[in-house]
């Protein structure tokens, strides 16, 4: 097993913020229509076929989809919600998506986030909004040893460098 954790920018990713009453039929139906996915539980992500839905807060989910589809998704969601109070907005370009992969990837994250990312506690499908170093970030587990990080676009370089430095410093061998 090579003791290396790779950190790389995954390039453009479509992201749409959807806010509304998540218990409403219209909201659920609109999410389903956009992604074929159910709204996940708190601190969870559901993913399939290049799309995903993330629980962000009690009245907000984040839709993950191909970058080119984001604008149409906003329009489609707005149309489906009709007069029901909601917000749908394309935030694809406001964010960066980073992959952290390797045998001690969880420890690389744990060097930077106060969240409990022990693999026994934070497995595939788990999602957290948290901080990495000095910036806000969201992280989720795709598979054991494979994680995704979303941060704001303006701090993408900082976050990449931060993760890379933490990866280069090697494993802690705690998890």
């Amino acid at each position: 097993m090579s003791e290396v954790v790779n950190v790389r920018d995954l390039g453009s990713q479509g992201m749409v913020t959807l806010r509304g009453d998540m218990s409403s039929k219209a909201f659920k139906a609109a999410c389903k229509a956009l992604s074929e996915l159910a709204i996940p539980d708190r601190n969870k992500i559901t993913e399939a076929d290049g799309k995903g839905i993330v629980w962000m807060s009690p009245d907000e989910v984040l839709l993950l989809l191909p970058h080119a589809d984001a604008a149409a998704a906003v329009a489609q969601f707005a149309a489906a919600m009709g007069a029901e109070h909601h917000l749908a907005v394309n935030v694809s370009d406001a964010r960066a998506l980073i992959a952290v992969e390797g045998p001690f990837a969880a420890e690389v994250l744990a060097k930077l986030t106060p969240a409990d990312v022990h693999p026994a506690q934070f497995g595939p499908g788990d999602f957290r909004r948290t901080r990495l170093g000095q910036v806000a970030a969201a992280i989720w587990c795709v598979a054991p040893g494979s994680y995704r990080v979303i941060c704001f676009r303006s701090v993408a370089d900082y976050t990449l460098n931060l993760l890379s430095a933490s990866a280069e410093a090697g494993p802690v061998r705690h998890f």
Binding site: Q134, R153, S166, A169
Partner: peptide, 16 residues
């Protein structure tokens, strides 16, 4: 300080 030194001392926000 931990890793927060030199280039990582503080995040520098960059515009496109």
């Amino acid at each position: 300080a931990g890793v927060a030194r030199d280039d990582l001392f503080q995040p520098i926000r960059k515009t496109p």
